[in-house]
Amino acid sequence: MKLLVCLSKVPDTTTKITFAEEGKRFDENGVTFILNPYDEWYALVRALELKEAHGGTVTVIHVGPSANDAVIRKGLAIGADDAVRIDATQSSSLFIAKQISAFVEAEKGYDIIFTGKETINYNRSEVGAMIAEYLDQPFISFANHLEINGSTATLDREIDGGTEVVEVETPFVVSAAKGMAEQRIPNMKGIMMANKKPIKVVPPVPFDEIAVPVFYELPPAKSGVKLIDADNIEELVRLLHEEAKVI
C-alpha cells in the first residue's frame, strides 16, 4: 500500500499569541513550532500501523520553506519512509491543497491520503476536502477508526451528534480525528535514522491566492471574575439569570 500523510507546522499549544505590525502579521518571535497534533498522533501513526500490517510505504508531505524541515524530520523519526517538501511559503488552504494534489497526480498510485482533522492554528479543516476534490476522490472527514481489507476500507467518522460507519474503496482521502491511533514517541534509533532519510524538494505549481488575511487581533479580554461566596449559590443563579441572562 502506498500511503501519503500531509504534515503541517503549528505553534506549540502553550504559545502566547501576539501579533506584529499592528496586527498584520503573527509574531513568530520566540515561538516554538511543532508538528500539528492531529497529523502526528493520529494520521501518521495509523498510516504506519497499516504499513506494518499490510506492507507498503508511508511518505510524508509538507508545503513550506526549508526552515520547516525539523517538522518533517519529526515525521521521519516517528517512522515515515521518506518525505516530500513542496518549496513554498504561501499558506492558504487552496494553495496547499493544490500543491499536494499536483504532486499526487504527477507521482500517482497513492491508495490513501491522510490529513489531520484540522490544524490547531487555523482550525480550517479544509485541506483534505480540497485535495479530494482536486483529485476527484471520496473524502471521509473526522474519522476516528480505519480498517482496511484488500482495497476496501471501513471507517467510523464523527458526525454531529453521533458516528457514521462507512465503507469506501481506495483511493480516498481521510482526515484523522482523536481515537484513530495512539501517539508514538520517536526513539533514539528513529531520530538517528530520520537524518539519513531523503526529503525530496519539489517546486510549487503556480497558483494565485484569493483569500488574504488583512489583520489579526486578540479577543476582547474578560473584565475580571466576580467571586461569589460558596455559601451563597442562590446569588450565582440570580446573576446568571438576571445579569448574564444565560439561564
Binding site: 505553534p11 504559545t15 499569541i17 501579533f19 490547531i120 492554528n121 482550525n123 488575511p213 488583512v214 489583520f215 489579526y216 487581533e217 486578540l218 479577543p219
Partner: peptide, 8 residues
C-alpha cells in the same frame, strides 16, 4: 489558534 485570536 483555537479561539486565542481573530483574523479578518
Amino acid at each position: 489558534f483555537s479561539g486565542k485570536a481573530i483574523a479578518e
